[in-house]
């Protein structure tokens, strides 16, 4: 799956805003930090933590040190999210890649069933190795063997085999749906964090200018 990043760059030039500094707002910062800690411990969507969103950055972060500290924390979180994203995406690609294979198998079973209805025998060139094929004549269409993994192959009546494969495909599709919902949730957290990083950075630039003034 391709990831396209959105780019955010906020430019703040206004610097004539009054610098408010009292105990109350200081308390608010403490509270905010507490809330973000609580959010970290909530486990939904495979335990992916919810991203920190700052409602009112101008009144919440008043000190340059706070901004820098927060920026560091958010950037660390961003790296973690990116790691989770690549792991989820590889899981997604793996399962998604299995589906066409299963569908091919099913297609073969349907073809055999059709041939069975038609009667007669089926000549086939089957793969022995890459680029090496040998000829076989199939006379019995009632049973097929399915490779179950772990060095086990089991013979199934053809209808049962079709059912099993159909089941496997629908299960794989369900897993894909679940993974997609997790990927979407994670994508939300990543976007939020990207925006937060640029907001905090721009805010820290602004605070820096205020300080120098």
């Amino acid at each position: 799956m391709k990831t396209k990043n959105l780019f955010f760059f906020f430019v703040f030039v206004d610097i004539d805003e009054e610098k408010l500094k009292d105990e109350q707002t200081q308390k608010k910062i403490e509270e905010k930090k507490q809330i973000s800690k609580d959010d970290d411990s909530k486990k939904i969507h495979r335990g992916i933590p919810k991203a920190l969103f700052l409602n009112d950055i101008r009144n919440e972060i008043l000190e340059i040190e706070d901004a820098e500290q927060l920026l560091l924390k958010v950037q660390q979180q961003y790296t973690k999210y990116k790691l989770m994203e690549s792991s989820l995406h590889s899981q997604y690609a793996q399962i998604k890649g299995k589906i066409p294979r299963l569908e091919e198998d099913l297609e073969m079973i349907y073809a055999l069933k059709k041939k069975k209805e038609q009667g007669g025998e089926l000549t086939t060139q089957f793969k022995v190795a890459d680029l090496v094929y040998s000829t076989a004549v199939v006379e019995n269409f009632d049973y097929v063997s399915l490779w179950l993994g772990a060095n086990v192959m089991l013979e199934y009546p053809i209808d049962e085999a079709a059912k099993l494969l159909e089941n496997n495909i629908s299960n794989a599709k369900k897993t894909i749906e679940e993974l997609l919902s997790d990927i979407n949730y994670l994508k939300d957290q990543i976007t939020t964090t990207e925006v937060t990083i640029s907001r905090v950075y721009n805010h820290s630039v602004k605070l820096n200018r205020l300080k120098k003034k």
């Binding site: 297609e107 073969m108 059709k114 041939k115 000549t123 086939t124 060139q125 094929y133």
Partner: peptide, 19 residues
Amino acid sequence: LVLVSDSFLSLDKQMAEEL
């Protein structure tokens, strides 16, 4: 000869078309 999965099936023309 129609390639299904890894094997070529030798089918009559009508069935190949249907497939």
